[in-house]
């Protein structure tokens, strides 16, 4: 049985002497000259086609060698932890420790720059709320990777589902905000605050992950907003980010507001709702001027000082 007309005609012609092919095809293809021409080529160059495939097949081996690296530098890969917009994170071991190794997603120069930026950004941050940067390198084929502290924790989205009281939720968000404020003091904007980028450890410490689209404020860098927007999650991205404009500390204020909104069910507390409203103002001028200012209001809420948000 033939699968298709192409298949049928090819084999029907093939069963005939080569001299009859042109006439046979002209008749059978019913005026479809392109089809006739393709078929004639297929018949005449069949031998070349088969040897080309034999050679191509054997070259696949070269790919397998690289596709499946066993080690990343001195680190032995154990398993894949997850993949994000920017890269894949593996669980690895090296120097007697279990670590997280992040590899850049296959991409061009823009992504490579972002990846190298992340390495530089992480190396200047040292805070209990941020996965510690340990090492960076390149594989023999040139792919960059970065090694971080491996954090065992629960993603924020999961953590919040297990019956947390409001005060506990606000305390956690405040700890995240403290970490973000620390980053800002070190001229780093995270730019991608969302539940899946926060892990809560067994001791209740939130850890901020994925500085993949973070930005260094003190460097007169050329705009790289385009590659920055590749990995964005629209539900948590600030309006200026979605518009492809440069990100700033106020972008993180927005992200913290979105996280707070998610953590504190809507309408549960009018005072918290006001803090959320002020943080997620679409217009940057309407937002808290800094994470510290937002923190002041969060602390005031925790201490029961229910005054109006600071102007």
């Amino acid at each position: 049985m033939s699968l298709t007309r192409l298949d049928e005609l090819f084999h029907a012609a093939r069963a005939r002497p080569a001299g009859e092919w042109p006439a046979f095809l002209a008749r059978e293809c019913g005026g479809d000259e392109e089809l006739a021409s393709t078929l004639l080529g297929m018949l005449r160059e069949e031998g070349q086609a088969f040897s080309w495939f034999d050679e191509a097949e054997s070259s696949l081996g070269l790919f397998w060698e690289e596709v499946l690296p066993e080690r990343l530098g001195p680190y032995r890969v154990l398993r894949r932890l997850g993949s994000g917009g920017m890269g894949t994170v593996y669980l690895a071991e090296g120097f007697g420790r279990t670590l997280a190794v992040k590899c850049m997603r296959w991409g061009g120069a823009g992504l490579l720059k972002r990846f190298l930026d992340e390495r530089q950004i992480l190396s200047r941050l040292d805070h209990p709320g941020i996965a510690r940067f340990l090492d960076g390198g390149r594989t023999p084929s040139g792919e960059p990777y970065l090694v971080m502290e491996y954090i065992e924790g629960t993603p924020l989205s999961e953590w919040e589902r297990s019956g947390r009281i409001l005060a506990e939720r606000v305390k956690l968000l405040r700890a995240v905000a403290e970490t973000v404020a620390y980053a800002h003091e070190n001229q780093v904007v995270h730019g991608d605050l969302k539940p899946s980028n926060v892990l809560v450890t067994a001791s209740g410490q939130p850890k901020l992950l994925d500085f993949g689209i973070a930005k260094l404020l003190d460097r007169g860098e050329e705009s790289n907003e385009e590659s920055r927007s590749i990995a964005l999650t629209p539900a948590y991205a600030a309006p200026e980010q979605l518009a492809g404009e440069p990100i700033s500390e106020l972008t993180d204020v927005y992200g913290l507001g979105a996280l707070l909104a998610e953590l504190t069910a809507e309408g549960a507390d009018p005072w918290l709702a006001e803090i959320v409203q002020r943080a997620v103002s679409p217009d940057v001028a309407g937002r808290y001027p800094s994470v510290r200012a937002m923190l002041d209001d969060l602390r005031a809420w925790e201490q029961g000082r229910r005054t109006a948000p600071t102007a």
Binding site: P22, A26, E34, T38, G41, R44, E45, A49, F50, F53
Partner: peptide
């Protein structure tokens, strides 16, 4: 295989001119 090869490398020799 024959079709793919034509698609990739075909028409390089004089023999593969359109018929008719």
């Amino acid at each position: 295989r024959a079709w793919l090869y034509q698609h990739l490398h075909g028409g390089r020799s004089d023999e593969s001119h359109p018929v008719g």
